[in-house]
Structures are given as structure tokens and as C-alpha cells.
């Protein structure tokens, strides 16, 4: 018998083991839901599977009675645009300022302490200020995401740039590279896969800020909907929305990982996360 740290599940077994906890959770839910509904058929806390199907049918495949929109898709579109704008702008800012701070000591000296300071401000605390400055429309919500994740991204990118071995920067100079060329040919390409990795981690916070902003001031969006129907204790809508958000988050993360593996094979075989996740 091998030691347990050396025992590896085979492909089929691995899939089965991965599905098992989900199946157990589902079973547990169905059992609990059945028990509650048997007590009180009007219970709203743990709706039956059928109620979910009805809610999904109503939200995703039938036009809303008042607006005529297919609400789930409208909400999804609005939220994804906000998320994409917020995360995209943050990533660009993180890349630009991270490289600037990491590569140029005279930029780092004034900017690095400032970024550290900004990163410590709790973004939710300044949400009212954002609403006052940017109004209640799209800009404020996108700004919350940007303010929430950019400082950390800048700090992370700066750190990654500083981790590039000094030997490489010296080497490039002995090949005649200017500061600009070093940034373009040595620093930037090595930092891009690290940016993708940081963005993947930052997405969790980005979703948090998005849903918070939508809950407080919005007329559509996934977060808005959840907080709206909470008033009617509509668990049959809330739970599918939560699972849908989770799925979206999962596929965005997976997509970014695949893009990274495909674009930067040298990075992933170096860090050894080429294949399995």
C-alpha cells in the first residue's frame, strides 16, 4: 500500500469525486425543502425544485408584464457591462502604474506610498461620496469597482515587476536596450500573465462591489434584482440568480485561465500550472 500522499485518483474517479459534494448538497436541500413544505405548504424559505423551474421560466423565457423585457438577460447584460468596464479599466491602470512604479525609481518614490495609502481606504465607506460626485447612474457603479480593486492591482503589479531578476535588466542594457525598450520587451511581456492571474483573483472583490452598488442604487442588474425580490421573500428567484452569478464568475475565471495558458505557455510551464487546475 502506497502512502496516501502518493495516491492519485484517475480521470474518471476524479470527476466522480468532484461531483460528489454537489450531489450531496442537492440531496440535502431537497430533503430539507420537502420536510418544511410537508409542515407548511406556504413556506417560502426552501422552495421546491418545481418553484425554481417556474421562476427561471418566468425570469428568463417570458417577457416581463410591465416592461416587456426578458429580465434575467437584461440584468445579466447590465451587470456584465459594468463588471467588464470596471475590471478592464482597473487592469489597464494596474498594468500602467504597476510597470511605472516597478521599473522607474523616480516614479515609485512619490507614487508607491500614495497607492499604498489609497489601497487601505475601505471602498464601501466612500460609496456615498461616489454617488454624490458621479450621480446615481452607471459611472458611480463602475467607479466603485475601479476604486475597489485598482490600488491592489497596482501594488501587485509593482511587486511583480520588482521581482524580475536584476540580471535580466542588466543583461538587456548590455544588449543596448534603452529604458523604454526594456519596459516594452523585457518587463511588459513578463508581467502580462501575472496581470491575468491578479485579475482572476480581483474578480471576487469586483463582483462584491458590483452587487453592492447595484443593490443600493440601480434600476437593473443582477444585484438589483436579488435585493428587489428580497422584499417578497422570493427565494425561488434569489437562489437561481445566485447560482447564475456563480456560474458567470466561474466561466470568466476559466476563460481568463485558458487565455493565459494559450498566450503565455512559457509562463505556465515555468510555474507548473500548465494542465490540471
Amino acid at each position: 500500500m502506497k502512502k496516501i500522499i502518493n495516491l492519485q485518483p484517475h480521470n474518471g474517479t476524479r470527476w466522480l469525486l468532484a461531483l460528489l459534494p454537489f450531489l450531496l448538497l442537492l440531496l440535502l436541500y431537497v430533503a430539507a425543502s420537502n420536510a418544511r413544505l410537508a409542515d407548511n405548504p406556504g413556506d417560502k424559505l426552501l422552495p421546491a425544485m418545481g418553484s425554481f423551474a417556474d421562476a427561471i421560466q418566468r425570469m428568463a423565457f417570458e417577457p416581463d408584464k410591465r416592461s416587456g423585457d426578458y429580465l434575467l438577460w437584461v440584468d445579466t447584460g447590465s451587470s456584465l457591462i459594468r463588471l467588464g468596464l470596471g475590471v478592464g479599466i482597473s487592469a489597464l491602470a494596474g498594468l500602467a502604474f504597476g510597470i511605472l512604479n516597478g521599473a522607474i525609481p523616480f516614479a515609485r518614490a512619490p507614487l508607491s506610498p500614495l497607492v499604498t495609502f489609497l489601497s487601505l481606504i475601505p471602498p464601501m465607506a466612500i460609496l456615498p461620496i461616489l454617488f454624490i460626485i458621479f450621480g446615481m447612474d452607471e459611472l458611480a457603479k463602475v467607479m466603485l469597482i475601479i476604486i475597489g480593486i485598482t490600488p491592489a492591482l497596482i501594488r501587485d503589479m509593482q511587486q511583480r515587476v520588482l521581482e524580475i531578476p536584476a540580471e535580466q535588466l542588466i543583461k538587456a542594457q548590455t544588449l543596448g536596450a534603452s529604458s523604454w525598450q526594456i519596459i516594452l520587451r523585457v518587463v511588459l511581456p513578463q508581467i502580462l500573465p501575472r496581470l491575468l492571474a491578479s485579475v482572476r483573483l480581483a474578480l471576487g472583490s469586483a463582483w462584491l462591489f458590483l452587487i453592492a452598488a447595484e443593490a443600493i442604487a440601480s434600476t437593473d442588474g443582477l444585484g438589483y434584482r436579488i435585493f428587489l425580490v428580497r422584499r417578497y421573500l422570493a427565494m425561488d428567484v434569489i437562489l437561481p440568480y445566485v447560482i447564475w452569478i456563480t456560474l458567470l464568475a466561474f466561466f470568466i475565471d476559466y476563460g481568463l485561465k485558458k487565455i493565459s495558458q494559450w498566450s503565455f505557455p512559457w509562463f505556465h510551464s515555468q510555474t507548473g500550472d500548465g494542465g490540471k487546475s
Partner: peptide
């Protein structure tokens, strides 16, 4: 007093670009 193309260097390691 800074590296230039006049003087090439080979370090013990980290001398080539991994990307």
C-alpha cells in the same frame, strides 16, 4: 557607471529571457 553594449555579461544564472 551603467551597463552598456560595450561590455557583455554572462551570469551564473538568470542570463536569458524566459519569455
Amino acid at each position: 557607471d551603467e551597463p552598456s553594449q560595450q561590455r557583455g555579461i554572462v551570469f551564473q544564472r538568470y542570463s536569458v529571457f524566459p519569455h
